[in-house]
Design a protein around this nucleic acid. Sequence first.
RNA 1: GGAGAGAUGGCCGAGAGGCUGAAGGCGGCGGUUUGCUAAACCGUUAUACGAUUGUAAAGUCGUAUCGGGGGUUCGAAUCCCCCUCUCUCCGCCA
Length: 425
Amino acid sequence: MIDVSFVRANPEILDVALKNRNKPPLEKELLALEESYRSLQTKLQKIQEERNANSAEFGKAKSKGLETSGLQKIMEALKIEMSEVSNALNEAKDRFFNLLHTIPNIPSNECPIGPNETANLEIRKFGEPRKFNFKPLEHYEISENLEMMNFDKAARIAGSRFVFLFGDLARLERSLAQFMLDIHTIENGYQEVYVPLILEKQAMFGVGQFPKFEEDLFKTTIGSYLIPTAEASLTNIHNGEILSEKILPLRYTAYTPCFRSEAGAAGRDTKGMLRQHQFGKVELVSITTPGQAIQEHERMTECAEGILKKLKLPFRTVVLSTGDMGFSSEKTYDLEVWLPGQNAYREISSCSRCNSFQARRMNTRFKNEKTKKNEFVHTLNGSGIAVGRCLIAVLENYQQNDGSVEIPTALIPYFGKEKISPTKP
RNA sequence: GGAGAGAUGGCCGAGAGGCUGAAGGCGGCGGUUUGCUAAACCGUUAUACGAUUGUAAAGUCGUAUCGGGGGUUCGAAUCCCCCUCUCUCCGCCA
């Protein structure tokens, strides 16, 4: 969540930020709610102070065997007043925090301002889209010809937006994940983590999934939620902790399935496995000091880009505009991979800098060595990268005229052979 | 799932209605002694929020916090209820 004292000290900034995110202004309302809850809090504290003083008095009088009925009357009156004020305070607090918790992060001024993805800014491009001497197919056409990807069978038993991968395609998914994890752990210094896939409400709140985006999550019968990304599990590793500055930055990576209800996506990307309720993703998370965050963001983005480069998949990197950014982010780079079958660049990784927005929600701090004060850490997350979409990209970019698919050179040691061919000719 | 025992500061651990934000120890920080290190000794050492002083650094006062929530009481770390988690034993199980 945002820092309210910052909002108070810097008028206008919040409303401008909200406008850039296509949201109505809230600053006035937020500050008024805060004011009303603060004044009630002060009032309650004064009553408590009086109560404590009288109570000490009462104890002394009692031990001396003095008359206490007068004091007792005062205390009883105080008690009633206290419970009234405290009820009012709780209501005011709820109103204030309910609003605060739904306010998105304030975009950095490095971000292009614009209403949606059309305002995103391309900052670099890698690779040239391959020239085909035949009409490139979409990934599901290639896969169905190979008879290794099946949506009908999945729909029959799991519903829409699920998929079966068979044989070499299942192996491709697995080898891509292993390839990515090896690079991030061995070359990029991330620690591999095996994580819970079901998290409690509190943890989802910490990373900003809750309460505003609850409908995007799958809820279990015990009231917990399936993770929509390993970011949720990894970022929460240090939930509630005070870290030593010396150990920062911390870098974590995990390969997990991700579960998304895709509540608002009805009708979008319904063909193929571009948008599924369940997909594999290798995630990168860094926890840093405020001073390290900007450089770490660049580094993390380069780590994600490195995967696409090694696989020789053409892509471009864009800075998301204010209107296209996620709730918790102050700046986001998207990597968009070239899909010849679609003749378009499509998102395959998203690297976000969240400053203290998540840390404040999780209450994750570090002790500043110089000032000896506890400060909120900064958190960053990025896909390193989405495995399901990467599989699509490999299929479409490496498809051959005869229906087979070549395996990128860097992946051959993981995949075990150089080509995927139809099982039955 | 059943039975029992627990949860106290950075860590260990006392406290069993008021004098307890909390003994003692460890660790950390500052200092004295010292050729250096070590040791010894002395001092200091929670967080959040509010009010207030100050240009600021910071100070002063107050409130809350002993796993979480509720209750009893003039007053709760301490008594009662509910929940969560940990440990031990039993059952079940990849």
